[in-house]
Amino acid sequence: MLVKELAQTDVVTVDVEDSLVDVARTMRTERVGSVVVVDAKGVVAGVVTDRDIVVYGVAGDRDVGDLVANDIFSTNVFSVAPDAGIAEVVDKMHEEGVRRVPVVSDDGLVGIVTLDDLLCHLSGQLEELADVVRGEFPR
């Protein structure tokens, strides 16, 4: 399976210069725990999570009102191409210790794949395998 078959295409984005308060409000309005941060050209610069807002924003050394997305977004962000394989993405997420990966093509951001997406997909596959086993050994 390819990433493009699993990725969410309705990605919530914010600008690198959006205030931290606006970023948090966007997350609340959109009911998401993370947003992709893009620059003025739409290029992915990073990801901000609700945890980043608390740990690096609210609990940081600066006044939250003075912070923008660029001040706290995660810097160990990598992206994958839509035609990347799921196993490749899982391996890279494990290596980098991340839960969210932007999906980027030559035209820019096209989606995001998350740990939740992968777990739901894998649980469906495991259920299909369990059905095979149940079919071989009726109880």
Rank of each mutant, 00 (worst) to 15 (best):
V48W: 00
V110R: 10
V77L: 02
G60R: 06
L126Q: 15
I112A: 01
Y56K: 14
D106A: 08
D66E: 15
A45R: 12
D116T: 13
T75R: 14
S79D: 06
G42L: 06
R25A: 03
G111I: 10
M27C: 03
V58S: 05
V98N: 03
T29H: 09
V32T: 08
D117I: 02
E127Q: 15
L67K: 05
N76W: 08
V113E: 01
R100W: 03
E88W: 00
D91I: 14
V64S: 08
V104N: 09
V44C: 00
T75H: 12
R31W: 04
H121G: 03
L122Y: 15
V89Y: 03
I112T: 05
V103Q: 12
G124F: 02
N70Q: 14
R51L: 07
G65L: 02
D66A: 15
D66N: 13
I72D: 11
P102Y: 00
G60N: 14
D61Q: 11
V54H: 10
R31D: 10
V90L: 07
D52Y: 06
S123V: 13
V58T: 11
V44P: 05
G42N: 11
V101E: 05
Y56V: 01
E88R: 03
G60H: 08
D107L: 10
E88I: 08
V55E: 09
V80M: 10
T114R: 01
V48C: 05
D66S: 15
V64M: 13
G111P: 10
D106N: 11
V77H: 00
G42I: 00
T29L: 09
M93Y: 08
V110A: 05
D61T: 15
I72L: 13
V38P: 02
R51M: 07
V101P: 01
Y56C: 01
G85L: 11
V43A: 13
M93R: 13
G42F: 07
M93E: 15
A59I: 04
V38Y: 03
M27L: 04
V48S: 02
G108A: 07
D117Y: 07
F73E: 14
L129D: 15
S79Y: 01
L115M: 13
D50H: 06
